[in-house]
Amino acid sequence: MGGLVYNEISKIVAQRRFFVVMALLTVIAILSALTMRGFAGALGVTAAQMVSTGASGGFAQLLFPLLIAVIVGDIVAGELTEGTLKLLLIRPVSRWKIWLSKLIAAFFVSVALVCYSALCIYVALGAASGFGSFSTPALAEGGSSYAVVTLRAYGLEMISLLSVVSVFLLISTVAENGVAAVGLCMGMTVICSICMPILHFFSSTKWIEYTFFEQWQIAGQITNSFPLTGWTIGGSIAVLAAWIVICIASGIAIFQWRDVKS
């Protein structure tokens, strides 16, 4: 499996758009760090205290998914469109292994992307308003040090990322065309971000809270910015885990059985 995952990662990072996305992320992270600066200055907080917020809110729900969609949205469909899938599938490697290696590679790259974003925020904010210390106790977040808070927030963000790539790989497996797959992943994310608040406003039904989109903000549970009330961390993890299992199982099932004609 190691060789397969290495292959998939090397294909992602060899494409120019990976660097375009990383450059874009750098700019966005620095700009948001600078907007946080006013806020940080007023409260007298440092980069070490603010960096955990980079795992929640719009970062977790919109920015990361959109960037990940650009990088890995076509990881299956693109190979079908380009015709490279057939040379990949005639090796003595079962299709489910290839699919899983694509998922793992997409996850690794997403984790790297989010860690890089955290680093950008930390450095930009630190340069602007001081780096501060990770050993300061985080009083508003339960009293453990900011090191622990930051690690817990980004740890939960990893679960969020796994569900993001699972959903996107399923979309990429169903789509017949690489560009369409990227568009579908991005479109779904944007439409959710527009529709979910409206649905919340007009309806009190609880099902909306069980969508993967709402739970992508799971790290907000650590930084007191989780938008849903009455949810425990365990509950959010369970919902995301269920989505991950459903997407992986159906993605593999479809990939395993489909005819590859192009």
């Binding site: 380009e82 015709g83 057939k86 040379l87 005639i90 003595p92």
Partner: peptide, 16 residues
């Protein structure tokens, strides 16, 4: 598939 090598239609590979 272990002892097999093949070209099916055009052998498309990774352009990048």
């Amino acid at each position: 598939l272990r002892p097999v090598g093949a070209i099916i239609e055009n052998p498309e590979m990774y352009k990048f």
